[in-house]
Every structure is written in C-alpha cells, then in structure tokens.
Amino acid sequence: MLNYSNPITEQKSYSGLQLKEINPIMKLIVRGKKREFLSAIGQSLNLLLPNEPNTSTRTDKLTALWLSPDEWMIYSNETSNLDNNDYDIENILNKKISKTNLGAITNVTDQFVLINLKGDKIYDLFETGSPFNFNKFRNKVGSVTQTILAKIDVIIQNTNQNEVNLFVRRSFSQHLFSWMNDSASRL
C-alpha cells in the first residue's frame, strides 16, 4: 500500500476561528460550452451546474462551483477511500462527456487542497490579505469567489453561516496555511 501524505496535518483553533484540511476529497474540473454538455452532466450526476456567476449548487453527494462561463469544479461532499484513486464519478463523466466530445473532464483531486474554516472571525482573517469585497458574500450561503489571499490564488465557497471551504493549489497550501495561522493569532 502507498502511504498518503497530505500537505496540512494540523488542525488549528483560535478564538472565533478553526482551520483544518479535509481529505481525500475528489475534485474535478469540468469544462464545456454546449447546451448538451450541461444536460449530460445534469442527467449523469443528477446535479445542475450553476450558471449564475459566483454561485454553487449541491446534491447530497456532490457540490458544483461556478468558476467561469465554461468551467466548473465538482467536488465530493464526503471523503473517499485512501488506498484507491479510481473515482466512479470521473469514470461516468469521462464516458458521457469526454468520449462524446461534449467537453473536458480533468481530475484535480490533488491539484487543490480543501481547507475548511469555521468561526465568526473568518472574514476578519480574509480582510488582512484579500482585496475581495466580502460584504455581500458573507451573507449569502452558496456564494463562490476566485480571488487572491496573501498573494495566492484561492477559490472560496460560503458553505454555511460562519463556515467556508477554501481551495488552494497544493504547492501553495503550506505557505498559505502558515500565513493564515500567523494572521489568525493576531485577530
């Protein structure tokens, strides 16, 4: 068996803020422009891709984030098995989308690290390093944004009142996590 080494091993807790990595979470980038692409995804996964910018949709098993007019991220709501990286959802979509030339399916499970933040100081933390205006975002569960935090590209999804999922590219994740902890310790 291969050992699994995720980049962020610690969970951190501050007054009004908790941070931890969640893994393994299957993540796919799905891209397409055609109407048939959207309906094929809908039928295959029983999931409607959000077409409104900066929003997300979800089912019991999956969440879809709007990234651009022809790009979405789909991730699994539950963690998957560590000793296998064959994902059913990916296989289904490869068959229904890639093989039929409707669009592109790319596995980005380890491209992005999912950091979950909880607490009422999340946005105080973001304000120390992101130029994005979170005033509306913070009050609308399901909102999604791609922006910069501490000079690093991030995707942030408002999953609940005072809870967000933050996606960052794996190679940047340790730097960002360290930066967030440094910032959180001063809030």
Partner: peptide, 8 residues
C-alpha cells in the same frame, strides 16, 4: 479546453 494540473 486547457486545465492546469501542475499540482495534481
């Protein structure tokens, strides 16, 4: 379609 997979 182009998608970066450098970190994957």
């Amino acid at each position: 379609y182009l998608t970066s997979v450098t970190d994957h």
